[in-house]
Design a protein around this nucleic acid. Structure first.
Lengths: 223, 223
DNA sequence: CCGGCCGCAAACATCCGATGAATCCCGCTA
DNA sequence: TAGCGGGATTCATCGGATGTTTGCGGCCGG
């Protein structure tokens, strides 16, 4: 194709060249379309595409802005794709997670603050095997998110977040719940939190590996 | 916003629900826009967005098709984002790569075929410290790609590919070349290939870790 | 009967202009 | 000075017109 894709490229280049920076406002649709030499409709298609992957933020009645362009972009883009790949090749996605999660936790072990440790404990309050699935998923998501955030790498955090999309996770939990494995999983969470508190990085890595692999092997058998 | 984003969601749902499968052709723009209750212009914006992340494939004069929906989607989406983040937080991205690459190579060590080993050797033919940067980058990209492919996980392959976008890599090589470190890097490649040939997974993992970390520390000092 | 060429029809590409809706900002008023 | 319009700006959405590309089927010659 041509015109619209050219527009996407040109906008991308403006970003790379620093001509447009995070937070900047783009010229009005009319002006920009004139400048890039295409119609407003076509430009809008380009902008819409860049908006989907969160590069641009369009505010009706106000203008179009460049987003913060931080690591969260990865989350949006990857999450969309992951969602489409559910069921299908979930196991391959899980393999990626099994690599990233222990490594991330290992890094986090030496960096986690006491405030974050408290937060981690807090997610476990009031959660037991009788909690409903909704809440279990929320807890699990938060638990892993705190750890990945403690690792101090926004891209890792984003990727892990996307890889464990809530829908994927919801299905897994639903399955685990039926198998009465909730207590076991929660105990693993507790062990991980304890090891993190002691700063025992090696143990953390091992525990997380076991934790993730456990879910993975359950999944493998369930399919 | 509303109409266009609704359209994106509806199309996504059609995919999730299996109403649309990989390779299927969408109804013509006019018909689909009627069915979804919006104008053709707005629908086109939605389609364009889905095309950017390679979910849809629009063929002019023919129709719009659903792509294979395989792991390559990740590549496209992530590569776009990574490209925007050059210079900026390259080190954080490198940290992710340092996690994934050794783990991937470790897996590859037990799976790599003799054909792939030959391919790996072939990439090294005719490459020495006098080769020009273009070719060095191509070699490096191919070398790592073969290994990640051998690991047999398409998502890993895609992610690594995106993380080591050619532009990023080109800059690094340009720097390395100036520091006369090419020979050293090539020697590391050879050592990795040898270890893979012997199926020594642990050694492969260590070598790759050293290899990646070497580039990383050079990068850290160069910034 | 087979293969190639031609032209029609289908489908996307691009553009334009009009109307609606949300937001912002400035000036007016109490 | 604080609050309230109201106009100007900007995006949202629509419908239609015209151009290009592609696919396909039919026609013609070998």
């Amino acid at each position: 194709m041509a015109v619209t894709d050219e527009a996407i490229d040109k906008i991308k280049e403006m970003l790379l060249r620093g001509e447009l920076k995070a937070g900047d406002r783009l010229p009005p649709e009319k002006e920009l379309s004139d400048r890039l030499g295409l119609s407003r409709s076509s430009l809008r298609e380009a902008v819409k595409a860049l908006e989907l992957i969160r590069v641009l933020d369009v505010r009706r009645g106000d203008g179009t802005y460049v987003t913060s362009l931080d690591a969260k972009l990865l989350n949006e883009a990857v999450a969309f794709v992951v969602e489409l790949h559910q069921d299908k090749s979930i196991l391959e996605l899980f393999e990626v997670r099994r690599i990233l999660e222990p490594a991330t936790a290992f890094i986090a072990a030496s960096k986690i603050s006491s405030a974050e440790l408290l937060e981690l404990r807090a997610t476990m309050d009031g959660i037991d095997e009788h909690t409903d699935v909704e809440e279990l998923v929320a807890h699990d998501l938060e638990f892993h998110r705190i750890i990945s955030r403690a690792a101090g790498n926004a891209y890792l955090e984003s990727l892990l977040d996307a890889l464990s999309g809530s829908t994927v996770r919801a299905r897994i939990w639903r399955g685990l719940t039926q198998d009465r494995a909730v207590a076991h999983t929660l105990a693993e969470h507790k062990a991980i939190a304890d090891a993190l508190a002691r700063g025992d990085a090696e143990l953390v890595r091992a525990l997380v590996t076991v934790h993730i692999s456990g879910v993975e092997s359950w999944l493998r058998q369930a399919l």
